[in-house]
Design a protein around this nucleic acid. Structure first.
Lengths: 338, 338
DNA sequence: TTGTAAGCGTTATCAT
DNA sequence: ATGATAACGCTTACAA
C-alpha cells in the first residue's frame, strides 16, 4: 500500500533520485521523463513518507500550539477555540499542521517540554496565555526554538501578537464615564499576565485622566474564570459601585449572576462592560457591552509571524516582531444609555 | 545543542546500541554501564530525535483529531473545545500528541487527506462530527488507517464512541409530557448526521409511546447552529407549540432570542429543552433545561479506544468498538414546574 | 552484556 | 539530465 521511492523508480525505469526530483519539482528533469515518472507515481498511488523527508530536511511543517497548565481549566472560554480556529486557518493556507499541547499539570510540563518541544517534531511554537513567570519562555529562548507568544511579553527577544489591551480598557471606562458613572469598579484579569495588567492599567489611566479618584476598594482581582467573576462581584457589592469594568466576558457573566441573585438590575442599578466580545456576550440578558478583541485574527497572525521567522533568511538577530492589533468597543444594553 | 546517540556513546565509552538500550529501558544492560550512560545523557542533555526513532519504529505517538469542513463554522460551539480537552487529557496520560486538523474547504479536504493522513505522520485518527456521506470514512477504511469516530456510524467496521442520543431525546420529551405539554415541537439537528437522526428518533418514539399524534408541522430541521435555531423557531411560531425540544443548546439559544423578540415568555408561554448542557445553558435567563452529554468523556474515551486498537495484538478482524455513554436530563427553569 | 551492521525512506552531493 | 552514494539519527537482529 504505502509504496516507496524505490518502487516508483523501478516502475518508471529511473533512479530514486529522479523520482525525488520530480516530486520536488526540480527543474532539471527531461519533460518526457517527468511525465513517465508522474504516471508511475499515480499508478502506485505513491505518497512521500513525511517522516523520512523531515529527517533529512530538518523541517516537519508542523507547529505546536502550547497552552500552559493554568489555563487548561479555562478552555471552556471561547477565547481558545477562536484562537485555534484562526491558527489552523493560517496553517491550512500555508500547508502546515498544528499540534495542540495543553499542559495539564505543572509537573508534567517540564517532561512535556523535553519530550515534545525538543524532540525535533516541531518547526516552531505558538504560545498562548502564558503568565509572566512561566519557565517556558526562558526555556524556549535558551534552546533557540522559534516561537511567537499570543500576548505581550516584556522580554525584548520575544516575538508577540497582542490586542491593544490598554486602549481597549480605556475605551470601556471612558464609555462609562461618558454615561455619567462615578463609582467605577473593576474586576481585573490575572495580574501575572500582561493582559490582566494592561487592562488594569487602562482603567487606572482613564480614571486619572478624568480626575476620578481611584479607590482601591473598587478594584478586585480575578483570574479570568467565571467563578472569579462571581467572587469578585460579591466582594464589590458592599462598596456599591455604579459601574464595573470586567476584564473578560466570562467573568462578566459570573458577575451578572451574582448581581441577579442580589437583586441588582443591570443596567438600571449598575452598568457592566466586559472584554473579549465572545459570542455569548450578545446572547445574554441584558446583552453585554464589551471590548472586542480580534481573537481569530490574533491566531492567524501568530502563525504568519512564526512562519516568517522560520523562513527568515538570516538566523542572526532579526528584529523582534511586536504586533498590536486594535480593540473596539461594542455597545449593547448592559450600560444603559445616557 | 541537539546531541545524538553517537556523541553520548562516545562520552560514555560505549556503543550507540547500548545507549539506545538504556534510553529504551532494555533489561540487558549492566547496572553500572547503565548508570554511566545516564550520566553521559544528562551531561550532554541528550534528547532522542523523535523523527529518527519514528522512521524505524513506525510509530509517531501522534494521533490526529479531524474535524471536517462543514463543522468548522461550528467551532464556536463549546462542544468542540470540550471534546478537545477530553482528548488531550487522555493523550497526555498516555504520552501521545494530538494533531488538530480542521478541514476548511471541501476542495482542500482531499489534498489534506493525502498529505496528512497518508503521510505517515499519524498513528491513528479521531474523527468528530462527520456527516453520513463524508468520503473520509470510506477513505480511511480503504487505507486501513486506524480511526475512531465520535458519533455513531452505521458502517459495521467503524469504531465509535457516542452518547445515547435516542434515550436522551426521550428523557427530554417525556419530561415535557409529564409537565402536561400537548403540542410538543422539535428543532432537529443536521439530519445527515446520526446525532441529528437519533435525537429526532427519540422524539418520535416518545410521542408514539404516549399516543401523542406526531404533527409534521411541529418538526423543523436545523443544523446545530444558533442561526438555524432562530430560523427554526421562527417557522414554528405559527404552529403555536407549547413546548420545543431543541436538538442542541446553541440552537436553543437562537430559539430563545426569537421567542423573546416575539414576546413569548419562557417557560410561561412555551417550554424549552436543549441538548448538550454546555456551560452557557446555566448562565442564560431562564436557565436552560437540557440533556447533558458527557462531551469531555467522549473525547477521552475516543482516544482510549483508538490506543487500544493501535496496541491491538491481532491486526485481524478485532471486534468493532461501539461505545454508547448515557445521557442525563438536567432540569432547570426553562420548562417551568408541574 | 555489549558491539557491529543493516536498515527505515528520504534528500543532496557529486560524478557521469 | 540522470544515477550512485552518502548522510539524517535511530532501532534491532545477529554476533561475539
Amino acid at each position: 500500500m504505502a509504496s516507496t521511492l524505490e518502487e516508483v523508480a523501478r516502475l518508471a525505469g529511473v533512479s530514486r533520485s529522479t523520482v525525488s526530483r520530480v516530486i520536488n519539482d526540480h527543474p532539471s528533469v527531461r519533460p518526457e521523463t517527468r511525465e513517465r515518472v508522474w504516471q508511475a507515481i499515480r499508478k502506485s498511488s505513491y505518497q512521500p513518507h513525511a517522516l523520512a523527508r523531515s529527517l533529512v530536511t530538518n523541517r516537519t511543517q508542523i507547529i505546536g500550539m502550547v497552552i500552559p497548565e493554568a489555563v487548561t481549566t479555562l478552555f471552556t472560554d471561547p477565547f481558545f477555540p477562536l484562537l485555534l480556529r484562526g491558527a489552523t486557518e493560517a496553517c491550512n493556507t500555508h500547508r502546515y499542521q498544528l499540534l495542540l499541547s495543553l499542559f495539564d499539570d505543572p509537573a508534567g510540563q517540564e517532561a512535556m517540554y523535553q519530550r515534545v518541544l525538543r524532540s525535533g517534531y516541531l518547526d516552531g511554537v505558538i504560545l498562548a496565555s502564558t503568565s509572566l513567570d512561566d519557565p517556558l519562555i526562558p526555556d524556549l529562548l535558551r534552546d533557540r526554538i522559534p516561537f511567537v507568544s499570543v500576548g505581550r511579553h516584556p522580554n525584548g527577544r520575544v516575538h508577540y501578537v497582542d490586542v491593544d489591551n490598554v486602549s481597549g480598557a480605556r475605551m470601556a471606562v471612558e464609555h462609562l464615564i461618558r454615561l455619567g458613572h462615578q463609582r467605577i469598579a473593576t474586576i481585573t484579569g490575572r495580574l501575572d499576565m500582561t493582559a490582566g495588567q494592561d487592562r488594569l492599567e487602562g482603567y487606572r489611566q482613564t480614571l486619572k485622566a478624568h480626575r476620578v479618584p481611584a479607590e482601591e476598594e473598587l478594584i478586585v482581582e480575578g483570574d479570568f474564570t467565571e467563578n472569579s467573576g462571581m467572587m469578585g462581584m460579591q466582594r464589590l457589592l458592599p462598596a456599591s459601585p455604579d459601574a464595573v469594568f470586567v476584564a473578560s466576558d466570562v467573568m462578566a457573566i459570573g458577575a451578572l449572576k451574582v448581581l441577579r441573585q442580589a437583586g441588582w438590575q443591570v443596567p438600571q442599578d449598575i452598568a457592566l462592560v466586559g472584554f473579549d466580545d465572545i459570542p455569548i456576550a450578545s446572547a445574554i440578558e441584558p446583552a453585554l457591552t464589551a471590548v472586542r478583541q480580534p481573537i481569530e485574527r490574533m491566531g492567524s497572525m501568530a502563525v504568519e509571524v512564526l512562519l516568517s521567522i522560520l523562513e527568515g533568511v538570516s538566523e542572526e538577530e532579526a528584529p523582534t516582531h511586536r504586533i498590536i492589533l486594535p480593540a473596539e468597543l461594542v455597545i449593547r444594553a448592559s450600560c444603559g444609555s445616557p
